[in-house]
Nucleic acid binder design. Structure first.
Lengths: 204, 204
DNA sequence: GAGCGAATTGAACGCTCGTTCAAGAACGGG
DNA sequence: CCCGTTCTTGAACGAGCGTTCAATTCGCTC
């Protein structure tokens, strides 16, 4: 294996962590270098500039969505609706684990980069789309348990909305309860949808 | 009127706009100075440092919540539930008006400032609390139209969640439709709650 | 209009940032 | 073992940042 690839991996992993905890603008190249024990030349040998590190980080999130986030959350959970809440529970765990300082890496970057160039913005959007796609699969699998007139794509996006909004409030107030109440409201929403579908089956 | 107050106002107004469009870290003191046609000394005569400008901006948002945001949105709307969606419609208008680059100033700052000091974080939280409080009033006013077992505080927070999540996705995808679908899902939620309350009145 | 504190001027400072690059080390095929 | 390529070293640079401050002007009071 080429050593440059190893260097690249080290940089991307360090940058993922730093961009997550400190944000993109507040993370300096020096931060990445001291974390990886590399020199500036090595980084610039692999990446043309700081923004290209960001792009690599966003690609890593995109490519690792299932491996690093979704599959672990769904382990041992088979019911498609419960899988949605299992994923949200994973975020709850992250919030608690970080003493309520957790912010969704993609969400934070999306709001921080106000005038992101098209490549970066596309990658942010693609990350959201991938996340929503995972939820969408659950909803499709739930099939007729949901009312037929429900827009499943919109509902999947609404799950992301709940997660991001809940994370934002939990972090700002330094209190998971804000996240929990958001998830509870979403649970109410699903309960009402499931009840409506059971009451008026698709056979009508 | 003391000239320093005028200077202060000019700085706060310019900073509100700049922090909103560029973010806090990406806005330089020089940006504020060129926007206000002031010199560095004048700014530092009024504010000890950049962070104090941020604090003043957050206080301005807090103090102007009703005057600048809520009251205009509610003009001509009397029904408490419709007022909630009127406020969301106001955000929709902001998104469209800014070509889908709009981000909620408070939400953006909340996610950008990863290690904000306590004063700043408190002000961010207070701004959220104020916004949620305005929604809460509507829900209280709606009274028995909502099921008695509904946690009105949590529901008000859920409205904020929907707004922030919708704004985030609309901006990232550069498409208001993401916001619209989030609001539509929230409307569904309210419709189901109202129907449930009508079905099983509080008199039980 | 003299006197004085408040407010403004704008050049300068020290620091950190992203980036560059000439020099050297490590590696691998023949 | 040699040579060309790939990768690393780390000092240096220029630009931009937040901040300072001695000098100056403004505006009010008596």
């Amino acid at each position: 294996m080429s050593p440059a690839i190893d260097t690249r991996t080290k940089i991307v992993m360090a940058a993922m962590d730093l961009f997550w905890t400190k944000g993109f603008n507040s993370t300096s190249i020096a931060d990445i270098l001291s974390r990886t024990q590399l020199n500036a030349g090595s980084l610039y040998h692999v990446f043309p500039g700081k923004q290209d590190v960001l792009i690599a980080v966003l690609e890593a999130y995109r490519d690792g969505l299932y491996e690093n986030l979704v599959d672990p959350a769904w382990e041992g959970v088979d019911d498609p609706v419960e899988r949605i809440f299992a994923l949200l529970a994973r975020y709850r765990w992250l919030i608690v684990e970080t003493d309520c300082t957790y912010g969704c890496p993609i969400g934070s970057l999306a709001l921080e980069l106000h005038e992101a160039d098209p490549v970066v913005r596309d990658l942010l959007a693609v990350n959201f789309t991938g996340w929503v796609g995972a939820i969408r699969r659950c909803l499709d699998e739930a099939g007729e348990r949901l009312p037929v007139d429900v827009d499943k794509q919109a509902l999947a996006e609404f799950v992301l909305t709940t997660m991001e909004g809940g994370v934002m409030q939990a972090r700002t107030h330094r209190d998971v309860a804000y996240f929990d109440r958001g998830v509870a409201a979403l649970r109410d929403h699903f309960d009402m949808l499931l009840a409506r579908a059971a009451q008026r089956p698709a056979m009508a």
